[in-house]
Nucleic acid binder design. Structure first.
Lengths: 345, 345
DNA sequence: CACGCGACGACAAGCGGTTGCCATGACTTG
DNA sequence: CAAGTCATGGCAACCGCTTGTCGTCGCGTG
């Protein structure tokens, strides 16, 4: 009999038990041990039970690498986020990780610092390891994503790409509730402070805002694009202050907070002079002052749903639903919005 | 000749090239191809160049799984964080990921929701895959960590564990600068709002505060422990307001912000009536109002340094430095601290 | 000119599982 | 009672790459 394990005799020190060790201890073939775990019905119940017990006693753990090699099942999923330090992702990561663990998968979070180049590199590194990919606000082009998607099952977050499963926040309804809220506070002229042009969500939000405003008979202005940062929001302050708008909806919370701070710094009071609404409800929206009224994206749900969609797609042969999943956004009213003052400032 | 690849004939569709394909195309043995990449000196320069070129043309990429199986080199590192949604980790994750990528490693971030059980499970799942582990504020016991550490090279963040390499913020000097700052503002009675008892950092911070206060001749009070959350900080407000303290240092920024909000809600003005100092300088410290004076932990540096230490330790045979690495913290003065009012409120 | 020695490639045995196929034996069925 | 069925376990090939070892060949040396 060939002495299996001779190869690594040098590292004999802390050998972890393998199916071969278990098999020997049980007096069965390694394949039987393997099957006892992976295909329980295939082996006699008693034998299986005995094997399991012995394995337990020996402290046997299947080596995921060895398992993955022939099967391709690494039990790894990648979540690519454009910026881990962006609070927008915290909830998403948490939700995704939760859903992944639930299905016995491990989530690989890759941070790409808002750079398409790094994104490509990270993907290249991770792709051979993972069974599927969730792209959170990817900076890559549509076509690049499509190429990706035929290498590994892919789900896109916050972006719609025909043919690729995607899950997005229901920006339209979210925005509508924000505008209705402002209309209810008697604002008549509202402004949108836009985020980066490349952002799919920005386009959706602006469109939804215009439409909602039209329907409700409000005048609507648009400023931007601005960078999706505190600084970006700050830059918008002057234009906003100079305009006739008494309320503004910002591309997202970070921009909204930047805007509020700059407005306040220049003597414009929020919400007394101008009401401000954000988007996403990030951690921090309730730290700022005044606390921020915002359209809450279902962050954790987004992440979890994306992972579940991915897993579902991996299970079945055919690429699943093409229709993007719309997850509801809800308006969270805090202190940054108020009834319009009768007298124009 | 045995027909390699027959095994997966069923999946013939999208075969990716292997060293066997490259070898055949070059008319050399697979082992030569392997060595052409992994041990460039071992094979004739011309041959190697030719192999590389052919490989390039065929689009060959080494399968990391297959490589990892015999060698154990997965090029994966785990970073365990107790709560991804805690802004404290953003910088750490970013720094760690940066340092990992730099060394051609991929970082696996595991979120454990502040639960020792989940932490153990996550570790169990990830351990066989990774070459090393960074434990960010682990909730596990010292002994559990030690057991872990002998399975895989480990570095601990923000905690000192004899025998295990660790990298920590220099809490002592950080706290000292905070207390000096307050003393400089003529505060005579200062309070510490404590975080969770299990926290190693909390102990360090409290001790450093007491010592600094003693040296500078300040009276020092202590409240807590409180949960390291906004709510936890809020709970402290009443006690703080009722005390003689005119300045408080909180366990961390989140607690500080919670405290400030609750103080303000009950009519205590910050910093006019009470100065507040936080710890960590998380994103959000400059969103709140007043913006928070805080001891900035070198977050990204912490993450990066931990990974580098880990990598260094993996390289050499002997477990490296035992002495914990102290990374400097710096006081960031913002709006939440001010000179003590002459008249007692 | 025989011998020794490096350099270079090939061979093959691993890493630790998975899985198609076969052998065996018990049990069912006509 | 013979033939067929099914449950069960074992054999061996295979995933793709690494690496110890060996054979070969060319060259320098005594």
């Amino acid at each position: 009999m060939t002495c299996r394990g001779a190869y690594r005799r040098k590292v004999e020190e802390h050998r972890v038990p393998t199916i071969y060790d278990v098999a020997q201890a049980c007096g069965v073939a390694p394949s039987t041990v393997s099957r006892a775990f992976s295909r329980p019905g295939r082996v006699n119940a008693e034998t299986a039970a005995r094997i399991r017990q012995v394995a337990e006693e020996m402290g046997y753990r299947a080596n995921p690498l060895a398992r993955a090699l022939p099967t391709g099942k690494t039990s790894l999923l990648a979540l690519v986020v454009s910026d881990v330090t962006n609070p927008f992702y915290f909830g998403i990561i948490r939700g995704a990780e939760l859903a992944a663990n639930e299905a016995d998968y491990t989530l690989l979070v890759a941070d790409v610092y808002e750079s398409a180049v790094v994104e490509r590199k990270a993907l290249e590194r991770a792709l051979p390891l993972v069974e599927g990919v969730v792209l959170g606000t990817s900076r890559m082009s549509d076509s690049a994503i499509r190429v990706m998607a035929q290498q590994r099952p892919t789900v896109v977050l916050n972006r719609v790409l025909t043919g690729i499963p995607s899950v997005v926040t229901d920006n339209t309804r979210g925005m509508r509730s924000a505008v209705e809220h402002l209309a209810g506070l008697e604002h008549r002229t509202v402004a949108y402070v836009a985020g980066p042009e490349a952002s799919w969500a920005d386009g959706m939000r602006w469109r939804a805002m215009r439409e909602s405003a039209d329907e409700l008979g409000l005048r609507v202005l648009r400023f931007g694009p601005y960078a999706p940062t505190l600084g970006g929001g700050g830059e918008a302050a002057e234009a906003v202050a100079a305009s006739a708008a008494t309320a503004v909806v910002a591309y997202n919370d970070v921009v909204a907070i930047g805007l509020m701070r700059a407005l306040q710094a220049s003597g414009v009071r929020v919400p007394r002079d101008v009401s401000v609404v954000g988007f996403d409800n990030i951690f921090g929206a309730e730290l700022c002052s005044p606390t921020l009224t915002t359209v809450a994206a279902p962050l954790a749900a987004l992440g979890a749903y994306a992972v579940r969609t991915l897993l579902a797609g991996m299970g079945s042969r055919t690429p699943p639903q093409v229709r993007p999943a719309l997850l509801p956004a809800t308006l969270v009213v805090r202190e940054s919005t108020a009834r319009r003052l009768r007298r124009r400032r």
